[in-house]
């Protein structure tokens, strides 16, 4: 048996950052303390805030929802969960079931917005159109744009002034590597645990798991019984990011700490580049009136490409 470095009980994980094995109790204490420190250090929440937790039903968003609710009383903010049902057959329904179960268990309201009802088509239907047009755009690109668009709209509609997401250290390391590969300088500048959109219509985004390795998030979710089924999005095969993730994990296995070093570089470059990159204020999309970096926002460009009608936001309360 491998023992906890602090109390001698059976260890559940060796925490790389501490290079110590910890038992379930001490690991949970460490994990929650880091989460809380993120809220404080990056001024993520204020008293009276209304926080929408963007939840997919995966482990990271369930952990974020669970801990945002846990600390809500101490910091004086309120929390609800927001989920997008993209309409991915054989995947989303199972993840949503897990989310409904956790939301009920911890007593938070859950609102669901479906692509079908708000955009007029499921992602599966959109992918059929993409295929018929030669897959110029990939499903993940389309899905990500519509998800962010609807989450921002729905959060605003429901009175939230913050959106919390479950992005973890691994996600952020992948994003940085991909931004470097694409020379995405404005994106490198933007990547930070708190993203203020620079426009009143863009709800501020917070990422309390920014410094949490994905593996630790899974261990914590198992300890807390935040169960999520073993299903993979069928479109993951199209995702360039998935390949980056595998490569970074190979590197991490060979040289532990690689992802922490990437994140440290990411934050450093973000700060350094912010001194020389001119800040732009989002304009309003001339089609839908939502904030955009170009005349017509990406969501409207994709809607036209896919032959979809106007956005008609439909929010359903599920629990």
């Amino acid at each position: 048996m491998v023992s906890c470095a602090l109390c001698g009980k059976r260890a559940v994980i060796r925490v790389g950052y501490l290079d110590k094995p910890l038992c379930a109790d001490h690991f949970s204490e460490f994990f929650e303390k880091r989460f809380r420190q993120m809220l404080v250090r990056f001024d993520m929440v204020d008293k009276g805030d209304v926080v929408a937790v963007a939840t997919s039903g995966g482990k990271d968003s369930l952990v974020t929802l669970y801990l945002m609710e846990k600390f809500s009383e101490e910091f004086g903010y309120s929390v609800f969960a927001l989920a997008i049902d993209e309409g991915i057959s054989g995947y989303r329904e199972y993840k949503l079931d897990a989310l409904v179960s956790v939301a009920r268990k911890i007593g938070v309201e859950l609102y669901v917005i479906s692509f079908k009802k708000s955009l007029g088509a499921t992602l599966d239907e959109m992918v059929n159109v993409l295929k018929s047009k030669g897959m110029v755009y990939k499903p993940c690109g389309i899905c990500g744009v519509f998800r962010r668009y609807l989450i921002n709209l729905a959060a605003r509609e429901l009175g939230a002034n913050k959106v919390a997401t479950g992005h973890n250290l691994d996600d952020e390391a992948q994003v940085f590597v991909m931004n470097v590969a694409r020379s995405g300088i404005p994106n490198i500048v933007r990547e930070w645990p708190v993203s203020r959109g620079g426009h009143e219509k863009l709800v501020t985004r917070i990422k309390p798991l920014f410094f949490t390795p994905e593996k630790e998030s899974l261990v914590y979710s198992l300890i807390r019984g935040l169960k999520t089924p073993f299903v993979e999005c069928p479109y993951v095969v199209y995702s360039a990011r998935h390949r980056v993730r595998r490569e970074l994990n190979r590197l991490e296995d060979e040289k532990p700490g690689v992802k922490y070093r990437i994140i440290a570089s990411s934050l450093l470059y973000s700060r350094l580049l912010s001194r020389v990159v001119r800040k732009t204020t989002p304009q309003l999309c001339k089609v839908c009136g939502e904030p955009s970096s170009s005349e017509v926002c990406k969501a409207c460009q994709f809607r036209e490409y896919l032959g979809l009608g106007d956005v008609s936001l439909k929010i359903e309360r599920v629990s």
């Binding site: 491998v2 260890a11 559940v12 994980i13 060796r14 593996k215 198992l222 994990n249 296995d253």
Partner: peptide, 19 residues
């Protein structure tokens, strides 16, 4: 499999891969 991408439970208890 890559141990970085796996968490193990032994007889129902989450444990480190060093067990």
């Amino acid at each position: 499999l890559n141990p970085v991408e796996v968490v193990a439970a032994k007889n129902g208890e989450v444990v480190t891969e060093e067990e």
